[in-house]
Amino acid sequence: MKEELFVSGRNIPFIDPVLHIWHWQIPLYLFVGGLAAGLIFFSTYFYLTGKEKEYPIAVQVAPFLAPIVIVLGLIALLLDLRHPAFFWQLYTTIRFDSPMSWGAWTLGAVMPLSVLWPLSYLTEIRAYFDGKNRYIINLIDWIFKMMKQYWIIEWVYKLSIEYRKPIAIVNMVLSIILGVYTGILLSAFNARPLWNTSLLGPLFLVSGLSTGAAAIMWMAKSHHEKIAFSKIDLILIGVELFFIVHLFMGFLASTAVQQEAAGLFLGGEFTAVFWGFFVVGGLVFPAILEILELYGFKIPISIPAFFILFGGALFRFIMVDAGQITRYLY
């Protein structure tokens, strides 16, 4: 029999018996980061490729969600800090090695620009929500009112329309950085064997894009746009599944600690929730629904969209939780 125990010391709150210093805040933050990245990416990409007319919802309307969810993410991030009053310390230095620093600056840049981008489509967004959501209409009307009172707002508004193209370019670049960053944040922590894989970055990026596509698909009005994003989603889900298979193949071919990490999902405590709820519920099931829809079955698009979004969020919660359990010692 092998025995390993702490004679004394340790049993430190949130660290023993297993690490649990990140709770819901970080996974939520990663989820909304990925979602925002997806929304902005598709919007700017189709704008820049001249498909604004073809995919009006994706380009003009959906990105209005981005700044909202980014603010949510920032609040979550702030709540995660043990010293939230000191958050500004993040902006006193740039540390290229630190994904946290990277993320803080990326968000710092994305935040204003993600406001600027949908601002240029305020009229279109108003039109989309007309008769649908009174609150959003009121909000947009209020913004228009403000413009009349404060020239600077109007100036910014006009600027956003005038420089739509450069803003789109910058936003697209930032959205890719944001998407990649949400994956890299975890994979930068070599100390957690589950996160210690270069596949995590691309996997999170693809997952983020897929949640973005799902949100657009949900909002889209025309059948054409719905089907288009449904197809995009299908491709992304396929890539995701491919990455997941490779992720585990990589773990199993790696060090003992990573095999142990993979074990959490292959018979361990996360097996059911990961394969059942995320892979089947959040990827395979919505994918099947989308395929059926492509073949003409009438399925409300909101169902696969919801499951993809749910799966995307769940995936991040699982990865953050499980990753903290995996360790080198003890």
Partner: peptide
Amino acid sequence: DFIKISTLGVGGLTMLN
């Protein structure tokens, strides 16, 4: 080795510390 904002020319906050 850290790049402080002050060296980037946008000081201020560092001074607040």
